[in-house]
C-alpha cells in the first residue's frame, strides 16, 4: 500500500497524460455536438467521448489505483465493456427514431423508405 505522499513520478506523469488526453477528446466530441450542422452529423460526436475519452480516463484510473494499492485493480474493465456495448445501441436506436420521424414527416433530407415498392414477405427469424 503506497500512500499518496510517495506516489512514484513515472506513474503520476502517465496517469496525468491519460486523464488529460481522455478529457480533451471528450471535450472535442462535445464541441462537435455544438458545431455540427444537422442531427445526423451530430450523432457522430458523442462516440469520441464514449470510445477514446472513456478508454483513456479508465486506463488512467486503473493505473492510479494499481500503483496506489500495489495490486492489480482492473474493475474499470467493467465500465469499459458496459459502455462499449451500450453506447452503440442507444445511438442506433436514436438515429433510427430520428430517421422514422423524418420519413413520416416527408422530409427530403433523408432517403425514403423503399419497403412499398417491393412487397416481399418478411423473412423468418
Amino acid at each position: 500500500m503506497t500512500t499518496l505522499g510517495d506516489f512514484p513520478d513515472w506513474a503520476a506523469w502517465l496517469v496525468a497524460l491519460c486523464v488529460l488526453a481522455g478529457s480533451a477528446v471528450t471535450l472535442i466530441g462535445s464541441i462537435g455536438l455544438l458545431r455540427l450542422g444537422n442531427f445526423y452529423a451530430r450523432v457522430h460526436a458523442p462516440t469520441l467521448g464514449a470510445t477514446f475519452g472513456m478508454g483513456a480516463i479508465l486506463v488512467g484510473s486503473a493505473l492510479f489505483f494499481s500503483v496506489l494499492e500495489t495490486r492489480p485493480v482492473v474493475h474499470e474493465i467493467l465500465i469499459a465493456v458496459f459502455v462499449t456495448c451500450t453506447t452503440p445501441v442507444t445511438l442506433m436506436l436514436l438515429a433510427r427514431a430520428a430517421l422514422y420521424r423524418d420519413r413520416t414527416e416527408g422530409s427530403s433530407d433523408v432517403p425514403p423508405a423503399d419497403a412499398a415498392e417491393n412487397p416481399l414477405p418478411p423473412q423468418q427469424g
Binding site: 466530441g29 462516440t47 453506447t87 452503440p88 445501441v89 445511438l91 433510427r96
Partner: peptide, 23 residues
Amino acid sequence: SLIITSTPGTIWLDYDAAKGTLM
C-alpha cells in the same frame, strides 16, 4: 452493427433483410 456504430464517423441506420442492403 456494434463495430460500425462505435467507430466514430459512421453509424448504422437501417438493414433491409430482404435485399441484404445496409444503410
